[in-house]
């Protein structure tokens, strides 16, 4: 059974915006990030409020970049990592636009793009804002230990990105990157139980979605200039390549991972970045700009998410993961 959607009208990503915290602003992609904040509380009293403010800030900025007003946005599709996705919902409260809250952990960005493309392709909506974000300090508080405890991070761990990204998808597009196909992922679990080793938990999900995508579309890895996974990190990327090699798929030439790109790993990031903000920032800053410059023309974006909670880990469950693939292409079917 095919799990891939083929979009006839090929909705375009007409504008993006990104925002990053101090650490990310000194990373590899610093020059491509639109708004850099020097204070990770963003002038707010709590980190949760800061995360929400970053998200709504970048949504407003993206809509502004798209030269649209808030009234012209038919829907905001957004999600984040906090319990009951409060950052997204509170952003929607502030912006006062129609809102669909979605959650697929760190693959929320590709889920939002997929849903927005389907809405627009079906003719139900014209302009949709897709956004996700995360914050290192809120994630640590929710998933791990208090920040002041200073617990030791194991070497297989990743670092949650403090940042947010928003893409405005529209039915009117012109010569802009278009969403052509998207593959809905299946929840995959190979039995990894170490919540510090997200890359290993998520690599099989990315692999399965890749295989399904190539089977459904009849494309091969060479078709794409870039196969961009979400936040597998260095270790997860190695595992994905190994899984692909075993299956006879060669992604060595064009696969990169957002988690590996975002930091110039020097101290405690170990395997690289993670979090919903990681793929959102990389896609909407560096990759989108490169697509506008025609440096990349065919990008397969596969954000990966680990669908665990602190409760499920404590009850001894392994980590189920998911990955959705969205193909973004230049030079197709312009009207």
């Amino acid at each position: 059974m095919s799990t891939t959607l083929f979009f006839k009208n090929k909705p375009a990503i007409i504008a993006t915006s990104t925002i990053c915290g101090p650490k990310e602003s000194q990373g590899n992609l610093a020059e491509y990030i639109e708004t850099k904040i020097l204070d990770d509380t963003f002038g707010e009293k709590t980190y949760e409020k800061a995360e929400c403010k970053m998200l709504s800030f970048t949504i407003e900025k993206a809509i502004e970049n798209a030269k649209l007003s808030l009234d012209e946005i038919d829907c905001l599709i957004s999600g984040d990592l906090l319990n009951q996705i409060i950052s997204s919902s509170f952003s929607a409260r502030r912006l006062d636009v129609p809102y669909l809250g979605v959650y697929n952990a760190c693959s929320t960005m590709s889920e939002a793009l997929l849903l927005s493309a389907a809405m627009i392709d079906g003719g139900y909506m014209k302009n949709v804002a897709c956004a996700t974000g995360s914050h290192f300090s809120t994630a640590e508080r929710q998933y791990r230990y208090p920040l002041e405890l200073g617990s030791v991070r194991p070497p297989q761990a990743q670092w949650t990105v403090t940042g947010a990204g928003c893409a405005v998808v529209s039915s009117k597009g012109g010569f802009l990157p278009r969403i052509t196909t998207a593959t809905v992922g299946k929840v995959t679990d190979f039995g990894v139980t170490d919540a510090n080793n997200m890359g290993a938990a998520m690599a099989p999900a990315a692999f399965r979605t890749l295989v399904n995508h190539f089977e459904d579309t009849g494309r091969s890895p060479e078709y794409y200039d870039l196969i961009l996974t979400g936040d597998l990190g260095a270790l997860g990327s190695r595992l994905l390549k190994k899984l692909c090699d075993d299956k006879g798929i060669n992604v060595n030439k064009n696969h990169v991972d957002c988690g590996e790109m975002i930091y110039n790993i020097d101290e405690e990031e170990y395997q690289g970045g993670s979090g919903a903000g990681c793929s959102a920032v990389v896609l909407n800053s560096y990759v989108y700009k490169r697509m506008l410059e025609r440096k990349f023309n065919k990008v397969l974006f596969i954000a990966t998410g680990a669908l665990l909670s602190t409760l499920s880990t404590q009850q001894g469950e392994s980590i189920p993961s998911i990955a959705h693939a969205v193909a973004i292409e230049n030079g197709v079917n312009y009207d």
Partner: peptide
């Protein structure tokens, strides 16, 4: 929900 050979490989290459 388990793939022993994968898990073995993961523990082999994890730092």
């Amino acid at each position: 929900n388990s793939n022993p050979s994968y898990l073995e490989y993961v523990s082999k290459i994890s730092p």
